[in-house]
Amino acid sequence: MDIKNYLDSTYLKTPEQAGLSAAENTKIVTSCIQEAIDERFKLIMIRPDQVRLAKEMIVKARSKVTIGTVISFPEGVDSLEQKLAEAQEAIDNGADDLDFVCNYKAFIEGDLETVKTEVLEGTRLGLQHNKIVKWIIEVAALTEKQIIQLCSLIKKVAVSNFKEELYHTVYVKSSTGFYVTENNLPNGATIPAIIMMLENGSPLSIKAAGGVRTYEDAVEMIKLGVKRIGTSSAKAIASGAESDSTY
């Protein structure tokens, strides 16, 4: 199976997180973008301040690689106004996919209206500009019941407010890859979590992010019904090697 069209090649570290200078970190981002172009991955997923760079490189290369970025990353606690402003700037800079971090903390606290409103307005903004919109729910922070409930909430908002032909452009995504778990437990896409997401998020699309480290892992996710896979080791996975990355 050629899985490259499923792979969102990802680099989301800030210079501080990577222990690098801004220039050194940008060099890594540039290398990741070039690799995505050379390998013909589906998408390069980077932070908002790097979208313009990716757009310039992809246009120059006449590549079909698309550009994704994260909104309110990694905790998702920004206000609706902040999220929409960040998303609009990413759109203006050339992003194709907007991966919003859902305010899962508000959801856990029972503030469902905040979550419903941001899902509605964030999705509306993206779809109005013909973008793909993904909602990161951070499965490692949720119980099984909460995974089911949050997927169902996102699905209900989308199905109630947007046309059926757009459902496939709205995703529920498993993880930021930055959530710190206790006892080194998985912080991203596990088979049980993905199955729950597929069962309760359909007809929306599902993206598995975090923890997919081998070609076999990726194929298994695809066979389950996942439409995208987020990974910082896209080249290794596509070539059949095993990644030691945590994302």
Rank of each mutant, 00 (worst) to 15 (best):
K27D: 13
A140F: 12
K227Q: 14
V59H: 09
G210N: 07
E16K: 14
N5Q: 15
R228F: 05
V226S: 05
N183M: 12
T176V: 09
D2S: 13
V29F: 06
A236L: 15
I237K: 03
V219S: 10
V77W: 03
P15S: 13
Y247F: 15
L125Q: 09
A208N: 12
K134F: 09
Q50T: 13
A140L: 10
G126N: 07
G225T: 06
K55Q: 13
V119M: 01
I132Q: 12
I46S: 05
A18Y: 02
V51R: 07
K27N: 13
I3A: 07
V133C: 08
K13Q: 12
C151K: 02
D8T: 06
L120R: 03
I44S: 02
G240S: 09
M1F: 10
D99P: 02
I237C: 04
A209H: 05
D111W: 00
T14W: 06
A90G: 03
I237L: 03
G76Q: 03
G225R: 11
L142C: 07
V29T: 10
I67G: 08
A193H: 14
Y104E: 01
D8P: 07
K223G: 00
Q82V: 14
N93F: 07
K4D: 02
Q82F: 10
S31K: 14
L125E: 04
E138K: 05
T231L: 05
A189W: 02
S239K: 14
T69H: 06
L12W: 08
K42A: 14
S232D: 03
Y104G: 02
L150T: 05
Q146S: 00
I58T: 06
P48I: 11
V29R: 09
G19Y: 10
R228G: 07
G94W: 11
S205R: 04
A95E: 06
P186F: 08
V159W: 00
K13I: 01
V133I: 14
P192K: 12
G240N: 08
P74K: 07
D96V: 05
K116I: 00
F107W: 09
T14Q: 04
T123Y: 01
Y11A: 11
R47W: 00
